[in-house]
Design a protein around this nucleic acid. Structure first.
Lengths: 192, 192
DNA sequence: GCTTTATGGCTATCAGCATTAACCAAGGGA
DNA sequence: TCCCTTGGTTAATGCTGATAGCCATAAAGC
């Protein structure tokens, strides 16, 4: 093969796909190199080691998640927006368990970090839902944290166990949406 | 018994303590052996490798968590029981981040597994709270799954990031409890 | 009290993975 | 044409998990 084939983005993308396929824990430099048809040390020309690769995959995943959520929120408000956010979130995590696992436990260094910005965009979308829902600013921080726990927990259980939920997983997820709807204070526009 | 300095329970307990101190990811056979004043291969006389050690730590943590929750629930009902459950859960996770991390991602083989039984006891306590709260049996499974997501997410974020929450973390946690209280349907006895 | 035995420790060793060093080949600009 | 940057290679190092096989000692039986 000639020169200049691989780029950093290629490596990260292939790593993300591989993590979704074989599981995040089994994503190793060797298997990724094999997937790319290259020897292991070559990856270090594009990525600064395994930790860096993981961080970049987490950034990619968070960015994609933010875009998916933002797209789902277009033209929605109130409880519709909440349901759309939740379904988009759940759909992304189900489709990309390896990528989401990368985001759990990823270290965010600070405002200069791309991952920080991507996370902030997801949380902004969450805040937009809550604000359009009638949550007061004083409660906003608590509401965001609570919803973050709920969705993060769902995602973690989803990507770890794959949910041995008996089969009515969708029904449970809809119940979860209704639960949030009831739990949020000060809303005029409610689900069923 | 012939001469027995170390026992399997000792190894697991020391592993759990070490995980709380230095972080679950950094818990290695070598550092655990060092803590116990023993060479690495000696641990294999008590524990069947690192995976087995992790599984046992997860079992220990889940058992302890179940006991803490059960104790907190004594004599409580309705919203008091919910608050007690949540606070006991949060306190355990905060005190033992390494142990809880062991439970996330632990594989439960089946009903013969001790971890399975320990998890079932925690979920039973959760169900008891919900039942005393007025949740119908038809919704029980959905409610349990939802609360499991919420508390698991809290615990995961807590033990991973240590929550850079600005300082009013307790206030947010109380808000979370109120959120659950409002979100659960069919209750007579409410907080606030 | 002496022998047997099994248990729990040890040293030595291997295998897998991340990482680094040192080297080489192609392509573009001087 | 020459150089030098770039992206690949092979070789080697270090760390960690894991196994094999040896050794010491305490408990059990005579």
């Amino acid at each position: 093969m000639p020169r200049g084939r691989l780029t950093a983005a290629d490596v990260v993308r292939a790593g993300a796909e591989l993590a979704d396929e074989i599981g995040y824990q089994d994503l190793t430099m060797g298997v990724l190199a094999q997937r790319l048809g290259v020897r292991t040390p070559s990856l270090y020309k594009h990525v600064d080691g395994l930790d860096d690769l993981r961080h970049r995959i987490a950034t990619l995943a968070t960015t994609e998640l933010g875009e998916a959520v933002r797209a789902a929120l277009q033209g929605k408000a109130g409880s519709d927006a909440l349901a759309a956010f939740a379904r988009a979130f759940g759909a992304y995590v189900t489709a990309h368990p390896g990528r989401y696992t990368a985001t759990t436990g990823a270290e965010v260094s600070g405002p200069g970090d791309e991952l920080y910005d991507a996370s902030a965009r997801v949380l902004d979308s969450m805040a937009a839902v809550l604000r359009g829902y009638g949550v007061e600013e004083g409660e906003m921080v608590h509401a965001i944290r609570t919803l973050r726990c709920l969705f993060h927990g769902f995602a973690a259980l989803q990507s770890a166990n794959g949910f041995q939920w008996s089969g009515d997983a969708d029904e449970s997820f809809e119940w979860l949406i209704g639960f949030v709807d009831r739990g949020l204070p000060g809303a005029d526009d409610r689900l069923t």
